[in-house]
């Protein structure tokens, strides 16, 4: 029972960060219908930015979120405006290849700049934990989880309550109709890609204290992010939040009750099953 609870708790905590990665991706997909295969590499950039400001300036990873977020926002907006925008109406495989190419450029440029050495951020709290009724809770993960929760809540507020947020949602719902309504869909796309990559960057910053950093780290997360997004319903922010938590817990439990080597496999099987029986995802609306 203890093992079960422990797995669920650590699954939820890790899942919180997964959720953040997924939310970024789902916003990009929702607004642009572009499958962003460079998402994990944006996360990787966030990790390197965190590592840089930590090792050079001594800024705590959780504080540096305030730097990496805006930085990645600008970078994402730039990518969208100069490159992604040109393939919005292209064939899906061309969009995929473009983002794969961008991912390769990002990860390999980083490799040239910083070599492929593994970087480890060692903070005073990197392996701290406290015990709650016999269940150990990782402090940095808990903090990351709380920050994720705050950011997600802020994002909801932004999407639901502000004009810009509503414009983004309208664009996601129906691009042509939104344009007819006088919404600047171009600007919304730039904004969406910026927000999406900022979230990936923030997620990168949040996992930096408990994980390690190397140029190819992104690919692990890209696929996971897709699973999360589809699970929750493409374009659904609540769905992605839920999807992230579900994936975190599923991985954690399958490592214990099935086999450590099979936890990713279980996730993909779950994903495929969902695609078949409810392709719109848990919370997604069926699109015509």
């Amino acid at each position: 029972m203890n093992v079960f609870l422990q797995s669920v708790i650590s699954g939820i905590l890790v899942g919180g960060v997964y959720a953040l990665i997924g939310i970024g991706l789902t916003i990009i997909f929702g607004v642009m219908r572009v499958i962003n295969f460079a998402h994990g590499d944006l996360l990787m950039l966030g990790m390197y930015a965190t590592w840089l400001v930590f090792s050079r300036l001594g800024i705590d990873p959780f504080v540096s979120v305030a730097i990496t977020g805006p930085l990645l926002f600008l970078w994402g907006a730039f990518l969208q405006k100069t490159l992604i925008n040109r393939v919005l109406n292209a064939l899906p495989q061309n969009q995929i290849l473009l983002t794969i190419g961008l991912g390769l450029i990002m990860s390999n440029s980083i490799m040239l700049m910083f070599t492929s050495d593994y970087r480890i951020l060692t903070t005073t709290y990197s392996s701290s934990s406290f015990s709650l009724g016999g269940i150990s809770i990782s402090e940095p993960l808990l903090v990351a989880f709380l920050i994720t929760a705050v950011i997600t809540a802020a994002l909801y507020w932004f999407l639901l309550r502000t004009d810009t947020g509503q414009a983004i949602r309208a664009t996601a719902q129906d691009r042509d109709a939104a344009q007819l309504m006088g919404i600047n869909v171009q600007a919304m796309s730039v904004l969406a890609f910026g927000i999406g990559s900022a979230l990936a960057g923030v997620a990168g910053a949040l996992i930096s204290p408990t994980y390690y950093i190397f140029p190819q780290v992104g690919s692990t997360f890209t696929l996971k992010a897709f699973v999360i997004v589809v699970l929750g319903g493409m374009g659904s922010v609540i769905g992605a939040t839920l999807g992230g938590l579900i994936i975190g817990v599923t991985e954690s439990l399958s490592a214990v009750y099935i086999a450590s080597g099979l936890k990713e496999l279980v996730v993909f099987v779950l994903f495929l099953g969902l695609l078949l029986f409810k392709p719109s995802g848990l919370l997604g609306k069926t699109r015509a």
Binding site: L83, V87, L98, G101, L102
Partner: peptide, 10 residues
Amino acid sequence: YGILVVVVIL
């Protein structure tokens, strides 16, 4: 390789 892919697609 990555640059090539991007250039071709664009």
